[in-house]
Design a binder for these strands. Structure first.
Lengths: 214, 214
DNA sequence: CCACGTACTTAACAAATGTTTAGTATTTTG
DNA sequence: CAAAATACTAAACATTTGTTAAGTACGTGG
């Protein structure tokens, strides 16, 4: 009976929602049963259906809650923190960095973000659309202020930067296995960001007929 | 070759496996029932269990078949095609490019690759490990021949290039919605590759205290 | 104190699902 | 050709699943 109350005396509704968030993130919506969620939350299965009208209602509530948390996280990237970070020499702020800084290491949110983006549900699409819009805005500002290079296709540029960032979260386990560091830990992310910054500032390949960057 | 066509001269076993591949890719393993697979393949549910011992056995067979097709695809990238492409001025060969060239537009394999990498099953991890090893080898060769820039952390560099490439497949729908072109079509990919190549050859951001690339 | 709504549980139900059994066609093989 | 094996189906089985019914504890407002 792993009580998933995160330290605080949460309302039962929130406890259930948190348990569902964790289980959904770990194993996927369909592979988790209402009884498992209830057991993890320490309540009866019927109470789950009492608070949320159905399993799908619970899923919607979890989606909404996760999207809210994730948006709050991402919002910091678009705010003052961003320009501050950029001024300090970091090439860019990343979603991965925000994850490492804000969420505890065992947080189910990275895995849930994965599910949100993978399953073609509206919540995931909406989340991506919001983040993409923010990315475009930030990138425009960075070009304006001379931090980022202009491009003929800013839509693709912004999308590329965003998805390359998200890929770290989506493929976290595979990256960890490949390079020997979990990229969503401070150590791993520092190592990751170092080389990625090099690519973003100097490139990685030679232009046709030219020398590659040192 | 990875023939995904439901040609009528296929053995029933292959027909079932292809139907399962498509359904698994579209909706996920757990959301698809044996009866649905049987119906899609035009056979009785019991026959599915007769050929593959269980639903999980079918899943394993589909995993193996998909991994084989995908590996065949990726192998071309490591072979002669790669150096040929590179010589012709393309900055790099990508998995996405291979998908567009080899698979018909309605192929379930991109979506299945997504599931393979997302669900932490061993088949997906093994696939990524193989692809990562190939990527590292190719990158080393490219550095050797002066096409790619050397880096202090080749493990991260190779991982970054691979996952940024895979991200196009993983987030295909979201990218399509954002930029208005499906990146797994010739048109969309050409547009995508153009700007990504620019980043990979010249970077996207200014190094601290320097001007960004033009 | 009483009525009442909310939180909550136990127990059961109906549908769906993976799987099995038993049997029929069809192909292979000695 | 006979026999054995394989391909295949129809029907049932056992379990699991989401959901509901009915009832109990409990705090709140009148």
């Amino acid at each position: 009976m792993g009580s998933v109350t995160d330290g605080r005396d949460l309302t039962a509704r929130a406890t259930i929602r948190n348990a569902a968030l964790r289980l959904f993130a770990e194993r996927g919506h369909d592979a988790v049963t209402v009884r498992e969620i209830a057991s993890a939350a320490g309540v009866s299965p019927a109470l789950v259906l009492h608070h949320f009208k159905s399993k799908d209602g619970l899923r919607a509530a979890v989606d909404a809650h996760a999207a809210e948390s994730l948006d709050a996280l991402f919002a910091e990237l678009g705010g003052q923190e961003l320009t501050e970070m950029l001024a300090r020499g970091g090439a860019s702020a990343s979603v991965a960095e925000a994850f490492v800084q804000v969420f505890p290491s065992g947080s189910p949110l990275p895995a849930y973000l994965r599910r949100l983006l993978l399953t073609n549900d509206p919540a995931g699409a909406a989340l991506f659309a919001r983040w993409y819009a923010t990315t475009r805005g930030v990138l425009d500002a960075m070009v304006e202020s001379g931090i980022a290079a202009p491009t003929e296709d800013p839509a693709v540029r912004a999308a590329f930067l965003l998805v390359s960032d998200l890929a770290v979260i989506l493929l976290r386990e595979q990256i960890a296995a490949a390079i020997g560091n979990d990229p969503l830990t401070p150590t791993g992310l520092a190592r990751w960001a170092r080389d990625v910054t090099a690519v973003y500032t100097g490139g990685a390949f030679a232009a046709p007929g030219k020398e590659p960057p040192s």
